[in-house]
Simulated assay, not measured.
Amino acid sequence: MATTKTRPTGRLLTVAQAAERLNTSERYPRRLIEERRITFVRIGRHVRIPENALEEFITAGTVEPVRLRMGRAA
């Protein structure tokens, strides 16, 4: 079975930049990389996270609010 690799597009972010965007410590993006929960790129011994992969990760975790209908109690 052939696997298709998608090429990262856009800017490549450092772990520090990704952490800043997520408003977390650098440990969290590193954990995402270690657990293979986010797409990343190895450049030698450096690790970069594609900007679009980070946006997809944020979008996937977005939870929409629930609208409650206020009805009359009968």
Rank of each mutant, 00 (worst) to 15 (best):
E64H: 13
L12E: 07
N23L: 09
K5P: 01
V15T: 12
M1S: 10
R45N: 11
A53T: 07
R48C: 00
T4Q: 14
I33D: 07
L13I: 03
R21T: 15
E20F: 09
F40K: 01
A18V: 05
L32Y: 08
P8W: 00
R11V: 11
T59N: 12
R21H: 12
F57V: 02
I43G: 01
L13S: 03
I33M: 09
I38N: 09
R37V: 02
G71H: 10
E56I: 03
R21M: 12
Y28R: 14
I43Q: 08
T24K: 10
R36C: 03
L12Q: 08
R69F: 09
E51H: 05
E26P: 10
R36K: 11
I33W: 09
H46L: 05
L54C: 06
A74D: 14
I38H: 07
A53D: 05
V66S: 14
N52A: 11
L32M: 10
E51T: 04
R37C: 03
A2S: 10
A60W: 00
T6D: 13
R11P: 08
T59E: 15
I38E: 07
T62L: 07
I49W: 02
T39Y: 05
V15Q: 04
R67G: 04
Q17A: 14
E26G: 10
N23D: 14
V15G: 01
F40C: 08
T62I: 06
R7N: 12
A2N: 09
L13K: 09
L13P: 01
V15K: 04
F40D: 02
G10T: 02
I43S: 11
E35A: 08
P50V: 00
N52K: 13
V66F: 12
L12K: 07
A2I: 04
L54D: 07
T24M: 05
T4C: 08
G44L: 02
T24Q: 10
R11E: 14
L22S: 14
T6I: 12
T9N: 08
T62E: 10
G44A: 02
A19N: 08
I43N: 10
Q17H: 06
G44Y: 06
F57Y: 15
G61T: 09
I43K: 08
A53S: 15
V15R: 03
V41N: 02
E64R: 15
V47I: 14
P29G: 03
L13H: 06
A53H: 07
G10Y: 02
R36M: 00
T3S: 06
K5F: 05
I49K: 03
T4V: 14
P29T: 01
V66M: 12
P29W: 00
I49T: 06
R69W: 06
R42K: 14
